[in-house]
Deep mutational scan, measured.
Amino acid sequence: GLPEGWEMRFTVDGIPYFVDHNRRTTTYIDPRTG
């Protein structure tokens, strides 16, 4: 799974992105792969 505090969501286009609730940021880069 994802690191603690992270969540995976999808855009309206079906593109996955990642929400970091710890820092309240979003990124398209998987936190597991950097």
Rank of each mutant, 00 (worst) to 15 (best):
G1W: 11
G1S: 14
G1Y: 10
G1R: 13
L2Y: 03
L2D: 03
L2K: 01
L2V: 03
L2M: 10
L2N: 02
L2H: 01
L2T: 03
L2S: 03
P3K: 05
P3V: 04
P3S: 05
P3H: 04
P3A: 04
P3T: 04
P3W: 05
E4Q: 11
E4P: 14
E4S: 12
E4N: 12
E4F: 12
E4A: 15
G5F: 06
G5S: 06
G5K: 05
G5T: 02
G5A: 04
G5H: 08
G5P: 01
W6D: 01
W6G: 03
W6N: 02
E7M: 03
E7K: 02
E7Q: 07
E7P: 00
E7V: 08
E7H: 04
M8K: 06
R9T: 05
F10S: 06
F10T: 08
F10Y: 12
F10D: 00
F10L: 10
T11I: 01
T11E: 05
V12G: 10
V12E: 14
V12R: 10
V12K: 14
D13P: 01
D13V: 06
D13N: 13
D13Y: 08
D13R: 09
I15Q: 09
P16V: 12
P16Y: 05
P16I: 10
P16K: 10
P16F: 05
P16W: 05
P16A: 09
Y17M: 08
Y17K: 04
F18G: 00
V19Q: 04
D20P: 02
D20M: 02
D20R: 02
D20K: 03
D20T: 04
H21F: 08
H21A: 08
H21Y: 09
R23E: 14
R23D: 13
R23K: 13
R23M: 10
R23Q: 13
R24V: 09
R24M: 14
R24Q: 15
R24H: 15
R24G: 15
T25M: 13
T25G: 07
T25A: 07
T26D: 09
T26S: 11
T26F: 14
T26H: 13
T27K: 03
T27N: 06
T27W: 02
T27Y: 04
Y28D: 13
Y28F: 15
I29K: 09
I29Q: 13
D30E: 02
D30N: 00
D30A: 00
D30T: 00
D30V: 00
D30S: 00
P31C: 14
P31F: 02
P31M: 01
R32I: 07
R32E: 07
R32Q: 05
T33K: 08
T33I: 14
G34N: 14
G34Y: 09
G34T: 13
G34P: 13
